[in-house]
Design a protein around this nucleic acid. Structure first.
Lengths: 140, 140
DNA sequence: AGAAGAGTTGTAATGATATTACGGTTCGAG
DNA sequence: CTCGAACCGTAATATCATTACAACTCTTCT
């Protein structure tokens, strides 16, 4: 009798390409588009966007990387508690990202809840200037 | 002596193309990509994406239309108080959008503020299922 | 009336972001 | 050793958005 093999459990092993992509994002330390990542990895033999996107898919699934929707870009996860509701503060100047956890009782979904909306995912992205770039503003 | 003319003040007049685009979005009543709008308006003589994007730019500026970042799509503004902090609940099933106003004291920017981040724009997008689609789920 | 600036228009081309298709390879459990 | 799942590379294509340019319409100023 045939029984289906149980699928591998997450976290799956980290593959070579995933490692490369994650390294680039960690090293760069800010939001990068898939094509920027690809450029950085052309030395290492990556040639096609799909290679980067595949690696990103897995990394996103494991939450080692986050997608910044408003930039169509990606950033290495820097620390966040995945159980809590979080958000990103995005410096429009230097493109660095600060992950943060929303305070308990930040009633983000309350209104939607009350209308019978069932929330599966919450996206919070703040755009602005980080402390460093604010200070440097006069000089540029 | 030459003196520069003062630029027209916003709100500028609503142009023909802007009217067309806004009508489509209002009629459709859900999030549409620029290319979907373009399809709907090919009868009316619009042929190029840029015509739609230009209209959308003006409509966005006047907040008659909102951009849904996580869909790369656009939706007609349905009511919201522009002074207050708002968000969107997006039904991943039917693509309809509910605009809502965040409750007073939903301390969305508090954490970022405390780190010296100066917030210029706040984006909140919830994904999930609306009440109607939730009810219909078993039938499809 | 006519010159000039700001805004709009249409057409075309291009750029930027993301996915699909396909066939081959590697890994690990039976 | 075989099989299925996951992964890989290559190529093509789909989707979303912008740039470039020349013509036209306003309005305002002279």
């Amino acid at each position: 009798m045939y029984t289906r093999q149980k699928p591998l459990l997450r976290p799956r092993r980290v593959t070579h390409n995933q490692e490369l992509v994650l390294d680039v994002l960690r090293t760069e330390g800010r939001a990068m588009t898939a094509y920027q990542i690809l450029d950085d990895l052309s030395d290492h033999g990556l040639k096609a966007p799909v290679q980067v996107y595949r690696a990103l898919d897995s990394l996103l699934e494991r939450e080692e990387v986050h997608r910044i929707e408003s930039l169509n870009a990606f950033v290495a996860c820097s620390h966040r508690d995945h159980r809590a509701l979080g958000g990103f503060a995005i410096c429009d100047d230097c493109r660095r990202i600060w992950e943060f956890t929303l305070p308990e009782g930040a009633e983000i979904t309350a209104v939607a809840d009350s209308k019978g909306f069932e929330t599966h995912e919450v996206m919070v992205e703040l755009h602005g200037s980080c402390a460093e770039c604010k200070r440097g503003e006069g000089e540029r």
